[in-house]
Amino acid sequence: MTAPAAPEVLGWWGVPLAILAGMMRGGTPFLFVSLGECITEKSGKINLGLEGTLLTGAMSAYAISYLTGSPWLGVLAAGVSGVGLGLIHGWLSQQPRVNDVAVGIAMIIFGSGIAFFLGKPFIQPSAPPLPTIHLGDWSSIPAVQAALAISPLFVLGVAIAPLLKWFFQSTRWGLFIRAVGDSPDAAKAMGISIFNVRMLSVVAGSFLAGIGGASLSLYYPGVWTERISSGQGLMAVALVIFAKWNPMQCLWASLLFGGAQALGPALQSVGIKEGYYLFNAAPYILTLLIMILTCSPKRTLTGVPGALGTDN
């Protein structure tokens, strides 16, 4: 490397640029986890354990990428590890008298335990990261180039969101999931196996969450450490509600939450220095406010799966 190219000073323009870049960089794991949680919740179960899945996915992706030299095998491994945890959650949370929230929290402990235990040897080495797609080469400004170096996983996630919407609206299997999530009794009358549908939904959701983990460790921030997720898996649960169980809105909400993560550092870099803890809490406060404003005891929230949060 020669000395850095003559730095262009962006000043205040850096803030919107950082948020835009943060949306695509930081939003990618949110996108995968929230789409995964969306599938799961549509079938009437909550999976709080996606925090553990995210960590296990991040660890597996990094480890496999390091061991084989192929980041894409790492992504696959992350998905497979997600499937493994999903099978446990899907089976256990459907046993009679077993609460899905409790299983989720136990799965956070178990999943993070497994990820930390097996991940010890992979903290030091550097694994090959995923390639990036350079959309910003038209610009001479390095900041723009960097902001537009997007991950193929982001593209994949953006493509999955409308597909999922179409899947829920127009396919037979999508209908099954919605039926099981909205009124299990009716679904049973239709001859659908509630157990199988929910199992598949939880497993598919965990698969996506595992890939979200791969995005953390192989794209951005691109390392494996035990603090890599800092609660994003749990936050995705709130995000799905924010998005009203609509995959397209999951996309927008993920971008928003990802951008919000970039807000604190970006504002400090231009001189706003007070209250960064409160900035960091902004997404949570916003979600709570939206819930308060849009929920009402008189009508159910549009999109909310009827069986969610019941023992059914």
Partner: peptide, 13 residues
């Protein structure tokens, strides 16, 4: 880690 990466990126910008 995520905030640290964002901080470095905004400094680069």
């Amino acid at each position: 880690p995520l905030k640290e990466a964002e901080a470095v990126n905004s400094m680069a910008d």
